[in-house]
Structures are given as structure tokens and as C-alpha cells.
Design a protein around this nucleic acid. Structure first.
Lengths: 304, 304
DNA sequence: CCACGGGTGAAACTTACTTTCACGAAGCGT
DNA sequence: ACGCTTCGTGAAAGTAAGTTTCACCCGTGG
């Protein structure tokens, strides 16, 4: 069939739009009209049908097709797709995200959302970046081989501790979490060599957690600290230190970023442990998932 | 026959892909096959013709069209365009990160960490992108003006519910969380006009939570659902629906991504509420922060 | 004055997309 | 268990979009 696209159909370097406007002068008058429409508003052009575009350019569909070939496309649909892609790419508003910053008093909710999401996502990413895989590996190993795992955390970190406990439990590891210091201390006193104690504290200064971790350590358990501050007191009683990287701005953020960062670390450890024994973990997970099945209603998927 | 579907998701700004994956479980099996193809490779899908796509999904063109309508498009061409745009906007999947995917069996810990962090961060970002500020605004308003706020959540979502409760409590709002269904039901029965009930369920199918939310609704309270699936049963008993956008891969990930996404939304609401009354919220936060001060050990200057 | 050749649109044609319809399977109330 | 609906489905009919063909116009050069 048609041989000869004048343009090598290879592919246009910079942008399709640029490419088109570059060879605009080499096009026939009718094609030029089409080209101008396309160049002036690629997004709009992408939305139009060929007939529509032809009419707008005061020409026939045939000419539009010719134009497509002239610029190296196979046909109109391809042009449309490319145009849509092109238009989308150039929109990209870098937007005024209030980076790492505080929320300005006059901010509207959309702004707030953007800011929070940005900071939250950052915390997760940066935490992952600075996580030391070697230390993680050791911790994973310790957990995987532990007789028992105690997890401590107070206040907000308590949620994370509890979450971790539940996760480990679900894959069949013997793990405990104690919301109460006294109970925790009691438990720590019963730990021994081969057991693991994990203390979670964002600031690394929560005395309750430190105390318990210390107790666990004197009993011979391997101790792990999860904190945002690598030189905080908690690190002094820990054999392994894992850090988060939440640049917790002000109290205003509700400290969620640190929570997310902690959860990410916990997630990594969890997956690491689960990966150690895939089939067993999988089996345990499936069993637990099945257990709650009866508490789910059959998703009616009709639109309401 | 159906008229314009009332799809609440006339708002799918952030990402079409995200939007689709949220709707995935509410689609019929054949449509799901199409959806999976589209989500897994939007760019490729955009290049395909409808017949092609239908064949690939082992279904008929008719189903593909139905799928288009289900996700809020006019027809296949529109979907194609949007898909192309989306694919273009999407940043190159950074290196070999297993996007949204599973962890390969042979992966080492560093890889696992990278994958998890990537997915977790994505969940946060995408959730923020698709959050409807208008709905948030209404919810924030409801919470800010509520006489009482009840928060429900089971299992993993319970942590989030509890976290939210604590946050609100810290800024002086009267909020409750009940780990137990019966207690929750009792509480819900005592709600009335001007109160707010918030139900959190990732799948949107947790019968306990739905039941309680329903109870709250019949008592005249404003009901809010936080779920990943915009057409799940829980949305039928909610006045306001907020969605997360965690493409929870397999159980292997420990479902952390969904947790993070939920927390992000909670964070946004919290900050929104706090921003309503800065000075009061600030004062309350400072007071509560001070309260735990005695449980902190003198920080040996954190970080250097 | 008559070929000639590119540019063009009308119309034929092909392919893609959309709608309709009937069948079968799964739930629902009796 | 029995019909009765409702829902998901693909085949086929129908419509619209895209593509090709072709003859016409119009300027140019013999």
C-alpha cells in the first residue's frame, strides 16, 4: 500500500507538536489548516473525531488522513492517542506544594491535602532510603528464629507496635504487645536468649519503652529499637537500631508522618520474615483471612 | 437502559487508573478481566482496538463497552484517549521496582524494601490525588460541629479508627472508638442529629462496621465511610464516602499500604478540623503534649 | 489549445464502535 | 423445590468512524 510517507516514520524526538510545527510549511494548504488546529490545541484535537476535525479545518476527512501520514502517523487514531499523551505530559503543573512546610493559616482543604500527602509520602520514601538493609536482615533473622517476640510502644507508637504484633501473629510467630507498662515489664523479665524485644518510640525518649527494653536486654533477649532519632536514649539499650525519617514538622500534622514511616519499616520487616518461609506464611495468612470471611457481606456490586 | 449512572466518581481527577482499580471489585468478572488488562498496562491498552482488547480479555466487545461505562467513560474512544494521557503523565516506573506487584521469590531484602516503600508511598500519593476536597470539607465541617463523634473499625482498620479517635480527642473533640461490636452498637443507638459516625473498612464489606453505621444513620447521625472501594456495601449506608487508593497487591504486603492510605485520609481530616479553630486546637495539643512530658527521659540531644 | 500533475473532496468502502436481544445462570420469594 | 425475576453475557445487527478510491478542478508547461 501507500509507500512513501515523506517523513521517516521512525519517531519524533522531542515532541510530536514540535515535530508537526516544524514541517508545517512543507504541507499543503489544506493540511496546514489541520496542522494549525492540532498545534494550537492538541488536547482538544485529541478529543475530536476525524469528521469533526475535518469540518473545523474546513476540509475533508481524506485530507486529515493525509495529514496524519504526512507527519508520520499510521492513521487518525494513532495521531489522537499521541496527541492525548503529548498534551497530558506538557500540562504537569509542578504546583506550589508547600514542601516540608507548615500549613499556612489561610490554606484551603485542597492545599492541606496536597501538603500532607506530600510530606507523608516523603516520610515513607526517605525512610526506606535510609533504612540499612544489613540491619534489617539481622533483625529479620532474629525475629524469624525467635522463640518469642515482645513488642513495646506507648501512645501513638503503641498502634504501630500492636499492628506489628498482629502481623507477626498472623504468620504464626509468637508475638506479644502490651499496652500497659507493668505487664510489659513482667513479660520482659521472662524473656531470654533467643527471644526478641522490639521497642518503638518516635522520639526515642519514652521512658516506659526504654525501661522495658532494658529489662529485656539484661535477660538476654536481642533488643531492637525503632525510632526517628539515631542518637536518642532508646538506642543505647538496643542491639539493633532501625530509624525512620519523618521530619515531623509541627504538632499540627498530627504526627501521622512518623506513624507512616514506622509502619513502613514494620512492613518491611514483616515481609522479610514472611519471605523466609513462604509456604508456611502463606498458609497461615490464608487461614486467618478465611477466618474473618464470615464477617464480610457479599459485595453487591450494583451501583447504589 | 440505565440512565446516566450516578457514579459518585464524577470526580476522578488524580488518576484514571487508580479510579479503575478502586472500582475493580464492583465490576463483573468479565469486566474485571478487562480492567486488569487496562490497569496493568494502560499504554498498551490505549493502543489497542476494542476488538483487540476484547479478545485479549477473552470477552466480547460489548463487555468492553460496558466496562467503559462502568468506569464513567462515554465509550471506548474516550477511554483510549484518557488512558494514553494517563500513561504519558505517569512517571517512568523507576528502575526495576516491581510496581504494584508481587515480591519475587528470590528478592533480597534491599529489593523488598524498595518495592514496599514504593508501593506504600504510591498509596499515599494516589489517595491524596483522588480525595475529593469537597467531600472532605463537608466531613470536616460535620466533625467540627458534631456533638459527638463515633468511630468504628474492625481488625486492621480498628487501629486507624483508634488513631483517629485519639487525634480528635487531643484537640478537644468528643470522640469514641469501640473495639467491640456490641458496645459500638449501643453507642450508635445513642447518637442523634448533629452527631457523626465514621466507619472504616478497607474492603467496605465488614458487616460489623456496616451494621453499626446503619444503626447510627437511622438515629439521625451523619455517617461517613472510609473505604478503598467506592461501590462497596458500606457506601450504601454512608452520607459521605471517602476513598483510599491502595492497590493492595497480595496479602503478602501485610496490607500496610491500605493502612497508610487510611491514615493519610484521617490525617487530612484531622488537620482540617484542627485548622477550623487554630488557637483552641493548639492549646489542647500543647496541653496533651505536656502531659506526657514526664514520661520522657532527658533527651541526650537527638541527632547531630 | 491540449496534456499533465498535484491538491482536493465526494463517495464507496472497510473497520471500529455501539446497541439490541435472547439465552443461561444465579438469587429470591413463595 | 418451584417458578420468577434479575444479572451477566456474547452474537448479531446497526451505526458511526476512519480509510481508500477516484474523478474533478486548476494551474502549468508544452
Amino acid at each position: 500500500m501507500a509507500k512513501s510517507p515523506k517523513i521517516s516514520a521512525s519517531h519524533e524526538p522531542g515532541g510530536l507538536i514540535v515535530h508537526i510545527s516544524g514541517l508545517l510549511p512543507s504541507l499543503s494548504p489544506a493540511e496546514q489548516r489541520v496542522a494549525r488546529l492540532v498545534v494550537s490545541d492538541p488536547a482538544a484535537a485529541a478529543r475530536r473525531t476525524i469528521t469533526d476535525l475535518a469540518t473545523a479545518a474546513e476540509t475533508s476527512e481524506a485530507t486529515v488522513i493525509r495529514f496524519c501520514r504526512s507527519v508520520g502517523m499510521d492513521g487518525y487514531p494513532q495521531l489522537r492517542i499521541r496527541l492525548a499523551a503529548e498534551a497530558a505530559r506538557r500540562v504537569e503543573p509542578p504546583d506550589a506544594r508547600v514542601v516540608g512546610g507548615d500549613i499556612p493559616p489561610g490554606a484551603d482543604l485542597a492545599q492541606i491535602i496536597a501538603t500532607i500527602a506530600f510530606n507523608d509520602a516523603r516520610a515513607v520514601e526517605e525512610t526506606a532510603e535510609q533504612l540499612d538493609p544489613a540491619v534489617c536482615e539481622q533483625v529479620v533473622e532474629a525475629i524469624a528464629g525467635a522463640g518469642r517476640i515482645d513488642i513495646y510502644g506507648a501512645g501513638a507508637s503503641g498502634f504501630v507496635a500492636s499492628d506489628f504484633q498482629q502481623k507477626l501473629h498472623r504468620i504464626g510467630r509468637i508475638a506479644f504487645y502490651f499496652p500497659d507498662v507493668h505487664t510489659a515489664l513482667t513479660s520482659a523479665a521472662l524473656l531470654g536468649r533467643g527471644d526478641v524485644a522490639i521497642g518503638i518510640s518516635h522520639t526515642g525518649t519514652t521512658s516506659d519503652v526504654i525501661e522495658v527494653l532494658e529489662q529485656a536486654r539484661t535477660r538476654g533477649a536481642a533488643t531492637v529499637a525503632l525510632t526517628n532519632f539515631p542518637r536518642s536514649p532508646i538506642t543505647e539499650v538496643a542491639d539493633f537500631v532501625l530509624t525512620t525519617a519523618a521530619r515531623e514538622t509541627t504538632y499540627r500534622s498530627g504526627a501521622t508522618a512518623s506513624r507512616l514511616a514506622q509502619l513502613t519499616v514494620v512492613d518491611c520487616l514483616f515481609v522479610g520474615v514472611a519471605a523466609r518461609n513462604r509456604s508456611r506464611a502463606r498458609k497461615a495468612l490464608e487461614a486467618t483471612a478465611e477466618a474473618v470471611q464470615s464477617h464480610r457481606v457479599g459485595a453487591s456490586r450494583r451501583r447504589a
